[in-house]
Amino acid sequence: MTWDWNAVSEFMPHFWDGVLVTLQALALGSLIAFALGLVWALLMRTPTRWVRWPVGVVTEFVRNTPLLVQLFFLFYVMPEWGLTMSALTTGVIGIGLHYSTYTMQVYRAGIEAVPAGQWEAATALNLPRLRTWQVVILPQAIRRVVPALGNYVIAMLKDTPMLMAITVLEMLGQARLFSQQHFQFTEPLTVIGVAFIVISYLASLLLRALERRLVH
């Protein structure tokens, strides 16, 4: 086994470019996943099953099929339907949509965990429905689910390499490009492997600190 430090130092500038794209995709994807997940969770609570049923089927479908195929679908089918987006945008939407079906269940659990007394108090105070959600239910529900949402951010981080398959040059994409140009596979792949472990470990430490503050 040969290890070439020169290759590592040559790879480093590309590596940082990749980290930037990865984190960008992660941040935007998380925003979509958090927002859309909340929308799904609220739609699943509407009284008519004509809303609940389609939302349930669609989210179940998205959750149980591979993100990679979904990315291919978005990347190749959307332009056929006349909607052309950049690879990174496609990837962010794909990853956000996929994980929104997970965060939706987290929100649901959080909403269900709000004590019934809170609902009753809101009714007793004659709060309108929208206001009940805004100031009573959601602040309590979201506070509870922050750690679980954070777990999904870490899970998303580990799925960002899939964006490479739709030509996004994130960490793995940069590593592959560099390997193919220089015929050195060991160093770049090992560097990003270690980088993933380090980033997800730091993120988990951050998450634990956040959890202590929020959930006490």
């Binding site: 659990a109 999904y152 997800s200 993120a203």
Partner: peptide, 19 residues
């Protein structure tokens, strides 16, 4: 119950979630 995220990060497997 909300499923545990399978990809959850290093050492946070024990985070209870919202339930």
């Amino acid at each position: 119950t909300a499923p545990e995220p399978v990809g959850a990060g290093v050492g946070v497997g024990g985070v209870g979630g919202g339930a």
